[in-house]
Design a protein around this nucleic acid. Structure first.
Lengths: 213, 213, 213, 213
DNA sequence: AATGAATGAGTCTTCATTCAT
DNA sequence: AATGAATGAAGACTCATTCAT
């Protein structure tokens, strides 16, 4: 499958991906010309096609790298001894931080996914995985009787994924002004609330210092 | 400001906007060439420039039309005699329906807003108006003591706007399979829940027949 | 030949020529669009073609008007009782003034004559007339024995026409800084000198206050 | 500054300049299309833009080449042992020959300088250099007392530059019929005369065989 | 592998001129 | 006569991709 290159070749290939990451982040997908990438990498124009089929081709590589990082961040979960609210808050914080660390690229993927079907699917897949995780948790909690059983799990999971991811989008990509701790607090609490999860004596979710009243 | 045309001219201009709407919906913004629009309208190539500066220019007109329709739909609210949950459900349904009716164009605007700043701003403005309405309602309810006062209103409003709008996006633009009544039910209930609004004896929000288990 | 118009028509035609004169002077020939002329004239686009064939067509009218003015100015000569040097100075002054009064249009004609043969010829004709007058004077003076008989009259006439007209061009069109009286003095004296005309006791050509030493 | 090309690239670039020179001379500036140049050069359309920004860009190169040639020709002057009239005649002959050798391009520059400011300035600069040389000579001669001291040097220099250059223009660009030796004789003698330079026993300027009477 | 020159398809845009009212 | 909308030919320019060294 993947073509094999010599050591020198592999090094050049990586240089190009690095350069592409920089240039895409700076100029967006559409405004990036192949020559911008090779110039940034210090290679000749034609060298590009020794390693990639097209602009889409190298973009795929860039995104795959980013996706790996994102996935890693999201797989960091609390153990079973934590309370549901603790787990929700932890997961939210992880998501928020991963988004924040890669916001440029997430936005980029967003942009490109509206252009090419392939990337639409890549983006959707990430989103579905996120929703799927939510859905499984909801089903579990419904079975345990600790959340509202009238909510259809898939719908609720989609709603929660929407709430969190689109909030991050508005905040980090559209530059709305928010503050991380308060974001995590708000989203976590609304998440739990929305499922009808009892607040009980759970004190893990104390506000981090509220907005000006 | 806007140049004035004769009756014939205005008719042609409208024909072009109609054509553009069709073509944009069919091909997306980037893949639409001026020629496609004039061909669809049955005009000569050059006629386009009698009425519009550029592709962006006519797209603006298309979007303004759509925005008018959307705004109209969203201004239909329940009177003060309705309960908060009723009002939430009604507003949600209106939003969902307006989105559904114009989903092609909303998606288009989404796409284009990642390309041009002008349209990014148009889109943001709509979103901010929606969030602003949410925020005012939350502040009112907090004052009335019927919702969680620890939630920062602006944050909560953004979260709810995200939940609803991005759900619609996934459903109607990304073609995830959902069913309108259940969408409205779920979003409304989660909305109210998330704010910690008491369910009380309110029976207005009964599930419309649940998903297959 | 010339199409006949009603009174109203003729008035419109004149309005267009007036407008064209203004616009050509302001924008040059190439940068003048038909619509600029009609806009300046306050007429509709299409009206132009009721009166003129093309941009060249109306430019011809503009130039003919100007040529009439120029010719009038140049036909003002001193009577036979004046000395040759007086006649030379007078003719030079007339030329300089006429050029100055119409410099915009002369430059314009210069510009256009490099584009279209027709206008090249119009311009050449004016020039030839000017040279012809010089030539006849030189022949006469040679016959009278008051100028250098070794100079070939046509050559000398061309040289003098060049000296005067191109000086005016540099001065008035290329914006080199000169002062009218001194220009007339210098050109007149050099003109007479160059033909070997004896200075004699002729005092008509005293310097008007020389340049800073 | 200037981009660097490989040997092959530089060769192509030169081919394009050669082709442009031919095409400009043939069709004039305005009627030359980029396509005409690349066709003449036997290259693909797009290749042009590897080397030049625009039609103006390549025209600049063409003119720079010509200017170099012109300047070289004009720097050929007689040594100090020659008489002023000999020097005048020599300089005139050099000018006339250089003009004649490049008349196509001089005319072209004339045409283009009425279109673009950049080229107007290029042309003016050449002219000013020529005038400046005249002016210095006149001042010197005035100091030596061998020419009319009442003539303002800058004015006189402009007049002489006009006489010579515009004569060449009429002759070589406007196709008036003249003969080189007689042109040089006439211009040189009028030049010296016009400054009031004494003929003395100087026999260097004998007529080369006069025109038909 | 690397290079960078060569290619040409694909669009936009202008504007003189024609046409229908 | 006047109007102004409609037309379409013409040319500039970009840039991904191919090719020859």
């Amino acid at each position: 499958m993947g073509k094999v290159f010599t050591v020198r070749g592999e090094r050049t290939r990586q240089r190009l991906i690095d350069a592409a990451t920089v240039v895409f982040a700076r100029q967006g997908f559409l405004d990036t010309k192949i020559t911008d990438i090779t110039a940034e990498a210090g290679s000749a124009n034609g060298s590009f096609y020794n390693y990639f089929e097209s602009k889409e081709g190298i973009f795929r590589e860039v995104i795959l790298r980013i996706n790996d990082q994102m996935r890693g961040a999201l797989n960091d979960r609390l153990g079973p001894e934590a309370t549901p609210r603790e787990r929700i808050e932890h997961a939210t914080r992880q998501y928020v931080r991963a988004y924040r660390a890669n916001s440029r690229m997430v936005v980029l993927l967003e942009q490109v996914s509206s252009i090419t079907d392939e990337f639409r699917d890549m983006r959707l897949e990430t989103r579905r995985r996120y929703r799927g995780r939510n859905e499984r948790a909801i089903r579990r909690w419904q079975a345990e009787g600790i959340v509202d059983t009238e909510l259809p799990p898939r719908y609720a999971a989609e709603a929660l994924a929407s709430m969190v991811s689109n909030f991050c989008y508005m905040w980090l990509a559209m530059d709305e002004d928010y503050e991380e701790d308060l974001v995590v607090f708000t989203l976590s609490r609304m998440w739990a609330n929305s499922l009808g999860m009892d607040l009980g004596s759970d004190t893990s979710n104390a506000p981090p210092g509220n907005e000006t009243a």
